[in-house]
Design a protein around this nucleic acid. Structure first.
Lengths: 210, 210, 210, 210
DNA sequence: CATGAATGAGGATTCATTCAT
DNA sequence: GATGAATGAATCCTCATTCAT
């Protein structure tokens, strides 16, 4: 299950990439503002700078745009992540750094991430798996990192806990976007990162009671 | 900002409660299947067992239904929570029990909870605050419980960490619904609860490295 | 073609008159504001002070209300007219006085007259003739008066001109309502009456050119 | 307050004019028959020969059609008027001819004129002033003509009377449409024109009594 | 007589998509 | 390849009227 191919009437592959890039950019902004369902294809065409007819030269349906948007956002996040996390042997410091990098990326792309978090479910049963797959791959990045750290003996977790911790990290990142109405009032990104990292890794129990 | 009142053309308050209950029930099932936007008012009317005209005797707009759905789900969750968590002095065991109860409730109402978290964003700017308020109130239940546990000296957390931990608990409950496509394959609810509780409270660091 | 009977489910004739009076009064106010089509039967019932069910005890359809309204307005105008114009032998002074009285009545009932002028056409083909009949009867009042004045030798008009002059008087009265957006800026009722009377009776030609 | 612009989704201005012309023509016929409120947008679309979707490419709302209808009728009347009345110096003969021309135009367009006077009131508070403005402009055509005739010394009227006479001429033209149920039985257009002109200009007083 | 809940046909409007130019 | 006019199914909502209580 590799990336799902979205067919186009246009042959020139370069042009397809370029036009789709413009479409996606425009669409994200509109989805951000009004959501997928309340955004019309006409609006997307207009904001992309070409006609509705042209829009349909590069996609088959409105849903294709949503798919491309989701796909593009995942690629964006992963790319930024890869740029900054060297995949070396695991250590607690590596994990901490990876979390910080990831939270930073989410913060930079918060609108995009929020759009995706809120709109994936509008994908058809056919397209959804492709996107969930990407989400899983992202989880696996952290899973791998944690697993290595466990193997280095720096963390004490069984296999299931490794998976779950990876999930938690991912979700804590998304949480920064979908609960921002509350979290932003309380914490800066730095504070949030620091505290979540602490809670994730150190837990909360008062030592005297352990 | 108490509960937002949804006006009705019908005068009999009892009847309003009854009919709206039926509407909400039908709507949840439909939203679950197709989402808010893809569900038509006629479908809701039909599934509720009355005519479209009658539907509009009890609400003003389709969005009212969504609001009522969200409201009803929050009340459902909170009610079940209150039934089972006595608000006594805080202790780690209390917190653990509260988490377990909450996760159980979320699991029982997973369809409803999922619908709500996926569709709140479709509420108008006017109605949204009322629902977010409810979410905050739920967070505060846990916040209070944790704060008391800290005061009892059983947990070692600053005020901001208390808040954040409460958020995390809430989100981990939701996570059980919105990431169920992945989590269900790996864990049963019991396992999930046990492991999340452990990670939340004990952290992950290998003691020898602390 | 006497007055059209509007059937009612209620037997008590007194009550019918009373209730219908309330209905008509409420309806006129609403029609004045929003027109016949934009006014709902519910609004009329509410403004009349009884339930929608009760409304339909006294009329068969929404159009019945419009008919009653038109009928009532004509009766109102005619009654006031009869009160003040003794039907004696004709004379120019009588005609002048009658015009003044009529314009006064129209001014007092301007909202009602305007409503009628604007909404009669919404009556069904069945009801319309009854109302036009009333209009004609009003015209005939003036026609008769003018005819007598001609017979007295005070006016020099053929039979067709008599009819037309009567029409003109009627219309100049209605005109005070349906062109009030313009006329009111220019003239007071007294000025309007004086000038119209002058134009109607004396014409405009410069004598030196006659 | 120039002509109110009605926006269209279509860009080709020529096409807009053409299509709107077709729409207006169809709409007038339907309004004539059933009135504005009883005519559906679907009927208008069908009678215009295009789909409901296409209709809404050229207007924003049903009310826009009514506005276009009114606007178009005014333009029609004015155009025909301008074709036939050379705006030269005023004289009684000019005024008489203008009245005859105007009554003729009204007669030719009687359905349109009737529709307009019966339906303007359905225009929104926003659009109404634009249409009343046009009515005023028409009045001013006659006002100007009469004023010049007064200046030529052929008529003996003060300024207010000039205005009012212009109003009267306009209204007598309309009267030929909205009272045709009665007038047509009595007079041909020629008779009506001749008699109204006579009454308007010469008055009715028996000279021996003046 | 009075009430008001229930009904559902009907109506305005939107919008994804197509296709001739 | 690009354009944008045309389409019509789909959708939300209204409101006159009925009828059981």
């Amino acid at each position: 299950m590799a990336r799902k191919e979205v067919p186009s009437l246009v042959k020139d592959e370069k042009l397809i990439q370029k036009r789709r890039g413009e479409m996606v950019k425009a669409a994200v902004n509109l989805f951000k503002e009004n959501g997928f369902h309340r955004t019309t294809t006409r609006e997307i065409a207009k904001a992309s700078g070409f006609s509705i007819g042209t829009l349909y030269e590069y996609i088959r349906s409105k849903e294709d745009i949503l798919y491309l948007v989701c796909d593009s956002i995942y690629e964006g996040v992963r790319e930024k992540l890869n740029e900054q996390i060297g995949m070396t042997e695991g250590s607690i410091d590596h994990v901490k750094k990876a979390i910080a990098v990831y939270f930073n990326v989410v913060d930079e792309m918060q609108d995009e991430v929020l759009v995706m978090y809120q709109e994936v479910k509008s994908l058809s049963r056919e397209a959804l798996p492709y996107v969930l797959k990407k989400e899983l791959e992202m989880t696996e990045i952290f899973e791998e990192l944690i697993k290595q750290t466990v193997e280095q003996g720096e963390l004490d977790l069984c296999e299931e806990e490794v998976k779950l911790l990876a999930h938690n990290i991912l979700v804590h990142g998304q949480m920064w976007t979908f609960r921002r109405w509350s979290l932003r009032k309380e914490y800066s990104l730095e504070e949030y990162t620091k505290m979540q990292t602490h809670l994730l890794l150190n837990g909360v129990k008062n030592k005297s009671f352990t």
